[in-house]
């Protein structure tokens, strides 16, 4: 997808909100957009999503797109599943398939009990889950998230993190704005800042650098043909871009942000030639000053070292899910 000299202003003589945006977004990329309030981030995301047309320049090569707004106070005369089914059909799914995926996604977000609740009666957080599910059930080629995490509870935020990792692993592109600098830290392929109507590439910020190291991480030990590196089937690189280091007995140690561990395991299990997964561990938080204290509500399983979690055989990727629930937030 390409943005070519894209500019946008509202009204014939309004000030330029964005000017001369030149951007090439490869498939399977995670793009973070930053900027202060009112800087034009949301306008840029609306252009990405195709909701707005640029005043100047053009956008080419947009795949099938889904958009999640920041607030979804939808006073619509539908139940949650009813709305999701309609949106699934608009995305090109058949009715029964859309209804099945709607139920699946509500289940994943812990809102299965609200499937037949009218949208108008849902709490703010549950409405936001519906808004996120609406985008995810379509498995879009481009997912645009405008502060989609806002209003979600902690569990749902982690589900959304993992869903983003899945989209990327399937070759989809994700563009997002979020005020939390640790959001998907270390996983973004590119970061841009909107300032004075221009889009400028951003170096990795210190907050993200710190979060990339201290955030919850997972180590996966794999065994394959000697001298090779795992390659995913669909995407140009492995989900979450793991750090790859040699392990004991000719194994490889892949260290990845916890949000990407499920997607990485799935990619490893479906890779050709096949890889044997030897073990999956929660990475220990780095010691020393400046390390965040472990959340007292989620004590580390064995006090000091990592808790080994041996996966008996390939095809058991779901066993990992609880690792990413480990939270180590400053």
């Amino acid at each position: 997808m390409r943005l070519d000299g894209v500019g946008r202003r509202y009204g014939v003589r309004g000030p330029w909100v964005l000017r001369d945006v030149q951007l090439e977004v490869p498939a399977s990329a995670l793009v973070r957009i930053e900027g202060t309030n009112g800087s034009g981030k949301s306008t840029l995301l609306r252009l990405f999503a195709g909701i707005d047309r640029p005043t100047t320049g053009r956008i080419t090569g947009r795949p099938r797109t889904a958009y999640v707004p920041e607030r979804f106070p939808a006073a619509l005369p539908f139940t949650a599943v009813g709305y999701l089914t309609h949106l699934g059909r608009i995305h090109g799914l058949s009715g029964p398939e859309a209804a099945r995926r709607a139920a699946d996604w509500l289940d994943r977000f812990g809102a299965a009990g609200h499937g037949s609740t009218p949208l108008a009666e849902l709490s703010k957080g549950t409405s936001q889950k519906v808004a996120v599910a609406q985008a995810l059930l379509a498995e879009p080629g481009l997912l645009v998230l405008d502060e989609a995490w806002t209003g979600l509870d902690q569990g749902a935020r982690e589900v959304l993190d993992r869903a983003v990792a899945e989209r990327l692993a399937d070759g989809g592109t994700v563009v997002f704005v979020d005020h939390d600098p640790r959001r998907l830290a270390g996983a973004a392929d590119a970061r841009y800042r909107v300032a004075d109507g221009r889009l400028v590439p951003e170096e990795r910020g210190r907050a993200e650098e710190t979060a990339a190291v201290t955030g919850p991480r997972v180590i996966i030990e794999v065994e394959g043909a000697p001298g090779t590196v795992p390659r995913p089937a669909h995407a140009p690189h492995l989900p979450g871009r793991p750090d790859i280091a040699p392990g004991p007995d000719g194994a490889l140690r892949l260290t990845v942000a916890a949000a990407h561990s499920d997607a990485l395991l799935r990619a490893l299990l479906t890779a050709r030639p096949t890889w044997h997964i030897r073990s999956v561990l929660a990475s220990p938080p780095p010691g020393g000053p400046g390390a965040p204290p472990a959340d007292p509500g989620h004590p580390r399983p064995s006090g000091h070292g990592p808790a080994p979690h041996h996966v008996p055989s390939p095809g058991h990727d779901a066993a990992l899910a609880h690792h990413s629930d480990d939270e180590a937030r400053p």
Binding site: A49, G50, I51, Y67, P69, L76, L87, H91, A135, V144
Partner: peptide
């Protein structure tokens, strides 16, 4: 009939 947030979701999927 559609609140702007919902219209944006449909517009991203099918075009405004």
């Amino acid at each position: 009939n559609e609140p702007p947030a919902a219209r944006n979701c449909a517009a991203a999927a099918a075009g405004p």
